[in-house]
C-alpha cells in the first residue's frame, strides 16, 4: 500500500498517464473477506474516450469498477483527474463523476421524476455549474413523458434508463468549469432492447467525444467493438490485455479470455471486429 502526500500523488499520476484528467490505476488490488479478487491492476483511461472493461463472469469487472468509484476499499492507487479515489474525497468525486450500478433498488414508491431529481440534488439546479435538468436527462435516455410514472411499475430496462438519467443529472455537461466529467457504468445496456442499447451507447460515446470520460463494464462484445475506444480485458482478477478493439478483440485473445472458441470477423462497413458465435465450440471447465 502506498501513502503519498497529495502533491506527490498528483505528480505521480501525471507522470504515469501523461493525462492529468484521466483515470490512473496502478497496482490496484481488492480483497473481499478473505478472497483476493483483483491483483495488481494497472490501467489508464483518458477523457474523450470510451473505455470498455470486458472479461468472463467472475473475472472482477464489477469489482474493478466498484474499486475505482470508491465503493470497495482497495490497495494500490486509483486517481481520477489526480484526485485519489477514497472516502475522504467522496464529495469532490461526486461532482466529478457519476456511477451507474448494475442494479439499483429503490426502497419506496417514487415517481420517475423524483428518482432523477436525486441526481440533480448533488449539484443543484442553478448556477454556472448546474446539473442537467430532469427533462433533458429523460430525453437523453428516450423516456420523455415518463416523469410522472411510478418507478417501481416500470420494466427492468426502463428502470435502468431512469437510473442512467439520474446519473446524467448528477454529472451534468461532459466538461464543467473544473474540468472533464466522468461516467462509470456497470453493464449499462444488458437489460435493454436493441434500440435502446444503441441509443444509450451512442449517447455515452457522444459524451466522451464532447470531452468527458466514460468507463463501462461490457458483456456484449459487438457493442464493445462498435463503441469502445479502448478495451481492457480482465481474466481471473488481472489485466489480460488492453488496447484498441482491433488489438484486443481477436479470435485468439477472445478464445483465451473466455476459454471458449470465439470466432471474430471483420465488419464489412468499417473493418471493426465483430463476434459471430455460430458454430463456436464450447467446452466445459473454468
Amino acid at each position: 500500500m502506498f501513502h503519498f502526500r497529495s502533491d506527490e500523488k498528483a505528480a505521480t499520476a501525471s507522470a504515469w498517464t501523461g493525462d492529468r484528467n484521466g483515470l490512473a490505476v496502478r497496482g490496484l488490488g481488492v480483497t473481499l473477506g478473505t478472497r483476493r479478487i483483483l491483483h495488481d491492476i494497472s490501467l489508464s483511461a483518458r477523457v474523450g474516450e470510451l473505455t470498455a472493461i470486458i472479461g468472463p463472469n467472475g473475472s472482477g469487472k464489477s469489482t474493478l469498477l466498484k474499486a475505482v468509484t470508491g465503493e470497495h476499499a482497495h490497495d494500490g492507487e486509483a486517481l481520477l483527474a489526480s484526485v485519489r479515489v477514497s472516502p475522504d474525497n467522496r464529495r469532490r468525486l461526486a461532482l466529478m463523476r457519476g456511477v451507474l450500478a448494475q442494479h439499483t433498488s429503490v426502497a419506496f414508491s417514487l415517481t420517475v421524476e423524483e428518482v432523477v431529481r436525486l441526481g440533480v440534488s448533488v449539484r443543484g439546479a442553478h448556477g454556472p455549474d448546474a446539473a442537467m435538468s430532469v427533462a433533458e436527462a429523460l430525453e437523453a435516455v428516450d423516456l420523455s413523458g415518463f416523469a410522472g410514472r411510478d418507478y417501481l411499475k416500470l420494466s427492468g430496462g426502463e428502470q435502468q434508463r431512469v437510473q442512467l438519467a439520474r446519473v446524467l443529472c448528477q454529472v451534468g455537461a461532459p466538461v464543467g468549469p473544473q474540468g472533464p466529467r466522468w461516467i462509470f457504468l456497470d453493464e449499462p445496456v444488458s437489460s435493454l432492447d436493441i434500440k435502446h442499447q444503441l441509443w444509450v451507447m451512442r449517447f455515452v460515446r457522444d459524451f466522451a467525444k464532447r470531452g468527458g470520460g466514460v468507463v463501462a463494464v461490457m458483456h456484449d462484445l459487438n457493442l464493445t467493438a462498435m463503441f469502445a475506444d479502448q478495451v481492457v480485458a480482465l481474466r481471473q482478477g488481472r489485466v489480460h490485455a488492453a488496447g484498441t478493439p482491433q488489438e484486443v478483440l481477436t479470435r485468439a485473445l477472445m478464445s483465451e479470455l473466455y476459454d471458449c472458441d470465439v470466432p471474430v470477423g471483420e465488419a464489412p462497413r468499417d473493418g471493426s471486429p465483430f463476434v459471430l458465435p455460430h458454430g463456436a465450440r464450447v467446452s466445459p471447465g473454468t
Binding site: R90, A94, V106, L110
Partner: peptide, 14 residues
C-alpha cells in the same frame, strides 16, 4: 432521500 437508492448509490452521490 439519497438512501432511497441504496447505500452504494448514495455514496457515489457524495
Amino acid at each position: 432521500n439519497a438512501l432511497f437508492l441504496g447505500e452504494a448509490a448514495a455514496g457515489h452521490m457524495g
